[in-house]
């Protein structure tokens, strides 16, 4: 029996030092055993490396930034759909999730599938709402406060002892060891990501990450924990290894069981000196290191596509422990006319 063929649009083609997950997701989809794919890249900037990886991406279209609003995004996607007849879109940025969840129904009416968390699930796990999330579901989370204006920064001294984490709404996190640094990072983050800025208790310990896939009914379809072995100055994993701590796997089952999360996700965890796990962040999408999960035996993007297509997907029951990934940088040679095409026409 021949495999079905799907046209799948993927964002997050910025395979840079703080990489978007798109290129890793596409590698996983290219290796899917259960279907063939045509990959449509959705980019924001003309220099996103994935645009020029023609062995992975068949065609790329630029799309408007999430800040342009859902109407602009939908209009562009309708155009792309008219050209490519998309079966599915996999958005890979935190900031994209909100508009994509909002237009999910409209995309569905066009025949374009997604497999995203519900708006309530997406909102309640937001780092601004993490303390309430922890209390509601019974998870250990660090204490945090949201700062909406610099005058409120005096709360930091009242509530926390240094160091503290200063976090942007969607991206960026800095460790501040005193009030001056807190103020400096606050200004840096607000200039880039706006308000609020989240001040989070710093939990000392060892950091772990887990990625997986929930079916939306409380079941774990996939779960692969990883320990970062090599961390960049931006805190991103440049190398990592799959691990088998049963408490992390149990925590993931609880997360999915209690929230009934639908879609891919990443939990950022910290194990403190008393061996207690804290959830530092819940990222509502597939992480950039997803290809490690594929290498360890769980092709999460493939499973996500099959679930979006309404197929019966059996939960993965194993993965290989001790499997590593090591990221590397690669200089591609790009012809000027390709750069010109994507810059001028928004398509390549």
């Amino acid at each position: 029996m021949s495999k079905p063929g799907y046209t799948i649009a993927v964002t997050g083609l910025n395979a840079i030092d703080s990489p978007g997950p798109g290129v890793s997701v596409i590698r996983a989809l290219r290796e899917a055993a259960s279907f063939e794919v045509k990959i449509i890249g959705l980019s924001y900037e003309a220099l996103e490396p994935g645009i020029y990886m023609h062995q992975l991406v068949d065609k790329t279209y630029q799309v408007p930034y999430p800040s342009a609003g859902t109407e602009a995004l939908l209009s562009r996607l309708e155009y792309i759909h008219s050209k490519e007849t998309l079966d599915l879109i996999i958005p890979n940025f935190d900031a994209e999730l909100f508009p994509y969840i909002r237009i999910e129904g409209k995309l569905s009416s066009l025949g374009i599938k997604t497999f995203l968390p519900e708006m309530e699930q997406f909102e309640e796990r937001h780092k601004m709402n993490l303390p309430e999330f922890g209390e509601k579901y019974g998870f250990n989370v660090p204490d945090s406060i949201n700062i909406f204006q610099s005058a409120e920064l005096n709360k930091v001294n009242e509530k926390f002892s240094f160091p503290v984490l200063v976090k942007g709404k969607y991206y960026d996190a800095y460790v501040a060891y005193n009030m001056d640094q807190t103020m400096s990072y606050y200004n840096k983050i607000t200039a880039k990501w706006g308000l609020p800025v989240v001040i989070q208790e710093f939990v000392h310990g060892a950091e772990f990450n887990v990625t997986g896939l929930g079916d939306g009914f409380g079941n774990t379809i996939s779960c692969v924990p990883m320990r970062k072995q090599y961390i960049t100055d931006k805190g991103k994993a440049w190398g990592g290894i799959t691990i088998s701590d049963p408490r992390i796997i149990e925590l993931t089952h609880q997360f999915l069981g209690k929230t009934k999360w639908r879609g891919g996700f990443e939990l950022e965890l910290m194990k403190d000196k008393e061996n207690q796990f804290y959830i530092l962040e819940i990222n509502p999408r597939i992480p950039a290191w997803i290809y490690l999960a594929v290498g360890a035996g769980q092709n999460i993007p493939e499973a996500l596509v099959n679930m979006a297509m309404g197929k019966d997907v059996k939960p993965f029951d194993s993965y290989e422990t001790g499997k590593m990934f090591i990221r590397y940088a690669w200089d591609m040679i790009v012809e000027l006319n390709e750069f010109q095409q994507i810059s001028m026409n928004g398509e390549l």
């Binding site: 060892a206 772990f208 990883m226 320990r227 072995q229 990592g240 290894i241 799959t242 691990i243 088998s244 701590d245 049963p246 422990t321 001790g322």
Partner: peptide
């Protein structure tokens, strides 16, 4: 579950 190779490489799969 601790893996110990003949060459002396020790790996703890729980913690990595």
């Amino acid at each position: 579950n601790i893996a110990i190779s003949d060459s002396g490489f020790i790996f703890n799969p729980e913690t990595g």
